[in-house]
Each structure stands twice: as C-alpha cells, then as structure tokens.
C-alpha cells in the first residue's frame, strides 16, 4: 500500500476536506490569492491571515511523467505523476488516473477525483475532464 500522509496541525484542514470530498486551499485574506502547499503565511504577500476555501477542483496538466520504475514496491507501475494547475492559480502534485500511458497529457483539462485510502485519508487524484478537450 502506498505511503499515506500524516497530517499536521497546519495541513489537517486540507486532508479533512479530502475526506469530505472537497478540495480545500488557503486563500490569503490580504491579497486574495490561493496558495499550496499549506503555509503559515502567504507566499505572494507574506500576510499571515488566510482562510480555507473550496477549490473548483478543475484545472489543467502543466507537466507530467509516466513512472515505470516506482520508488518502492508499494506502487504499481505504470502510473502518471503530474503537476496540475487549478483554476484558482495554484499548482499541486497528483496522479492522473484513467489516462493511457502514451497519451499526451500536457495542457489536458482535468478534475479532482477523491479516493478513500484509509479511515483517515482520502487522496485527491485527478482524471481527464469529460468533453472539454485541451486547454485553449
């Protein structure tokens, strides 16, 4: 089984959101920009006031790689590791599920799909968004 996150006090709202099927992100109360991974201050303006808001869960693939030699036997290759940029402007690592290994995914529209891994953890995978095609 793949290694699962051990939430911290800072990241707990994010992971609790995943369990609820909601992709949460911090939004700066000062400059209103969203940021990820969880931080105690806004990387854009350094303000420490933020709120957790729900992301649309939609975005596009900035880049990706198909992994054929996993770091440990806990992973079942091939699988797609990607950087997804969400509509709110922040980026995150994820796995793209349901895509053919030889598909060109750069620019592809994707949406979050949660998968329950344990009692405490659901992971935010992404899948190709239906019928939207490539990012304009």
């Amino acid at each position: 089984m793949r290694p699962l996150p051990r939430p911290t006090a800072l990241s707990r709202p994010f992971w609790d959101g995943c369990l609820d099927g909601r992709l949460l992100v911090q939004r700066c109360s000062s400059c209103a920009r969203c940021f990820f991974i969880p931080s105690v201050f806004c990387p854009h303006c350094l303000d420490t006031d933020y709120e957790w808001v729900e992301s649309s869960g939609r975005g596009h693939v900035v880049t990706y790689t198909v992994v054929w030699r996993p770091p440990t036997p806990a992973f079942d290759p091939p699988y797609v590791v990607a950087v997804v940029q969400l509509e709110e402007g922040y980026e995150m690592f994820t796995n793209i599920v349901g895509a053919e290994p030889d598909a060109d995914l750069i620019g592809a529209a994707v949406q979050v799909r949660f998968h329950r891994e344990s009692e405490e953890i659901a992971l935010p995978f992404f899948e190709l968004a239906p019928a939207t095609g490539l990012r304009p």
């Binding site: 290694p3 996150p5 911290t8 990241s11 991974i37 996993p70």
Partner: peptide
C-alpha cells in the same frame, strides 16, 4: 505528506 503518496522520486521529479 504532499509527494510521498504520489510515488514521486528523483527521476520523476527531474522528468517533469
């Protein structure tokens, strides 16, 4: 907590 679960390791990092 934000990379280990995705099966990332150095070659995948640099491949991106």
């Amino acid at each position: 907590e934000f990379i280990e679960c995705w099966g990332l390791m150095t070659p995948a990092e640099f491949a991106l």
